[in-house]
Simulated scan of single mutants.
Amino acid sequence: MTTSYAELKAQIAELEKQASQAREAEIANAKNQIREIMQAYSLTIADLAGPAKVSKPRKAVPAKYRDTSTGEEWTGRGRAPKWLDGKNRADYLIK
């Protein structure tokens, strides 16, 4: 005996409804367990996050090269600026 497409779709809809209900029940149970553990150990949400990561501010890198005609500077990091293309970098070193 074969099952029709409409019957299969109805079964899928019923199973999705059951799955949704089961998920909601499991989530409610998990929340209750978490709440009980947090109360037993006097934990807060902040305790769960752990210590905040403190990042140090980055220091500005001093310029290493300067175009004397325009005053533009370059740190020597990353792509070289257009004003330095084809030129001797040593001539533009900041002393």
Rank of each mutant, 00 (worst) to 15 (best):
M1H: 12
T2F: 06
T2G: 05
S4E: 09
S4M: 06
L8H: 06
L8S: 04
K9P: 00
Q11K: 15
E14F: 06
L15Q: 11
Q21D: 12
A22C: 07
A22V: 09
A22D: 14
A22L: 14
A25H: 04
A28N: 08
N29Y: 00
A30V: 04
N32I: 02
N32M: 04
Q33R: 13
I34Q: 09
M38S: 01
Y41C: 03
Y41N: 08
S42A: 09
T44V: 02
T44M: 01
A46R: 10
A46F: 03
D47F: 06
D47N: 15
A49Y: 03
G50N: 05
P51F: 02
P51L: 03
A52R: 14
A52C: 04
V54F: 01
V54E: 10
V54M: 05
S55R: 12
K56Y: 09
P57T: 07
P57A: 10
K59F: 04
A60D: 13
A60N: 13
V61S: 10
A63I: 09
Y65S: 02
D67V: 03
D67T: 03
D67H: 14
T68I: 12
E72F: 09
T75E: 13
G76I: 02
G78H: 12
R79A: 15
K82N: 14
K82I: 11
W83E: 03
W83N: 02
K87S: 09
K87T: 13
N88T: 12
R89I: 10
A90I: 08
A90T: 13
I94F: 05
I94C: 05
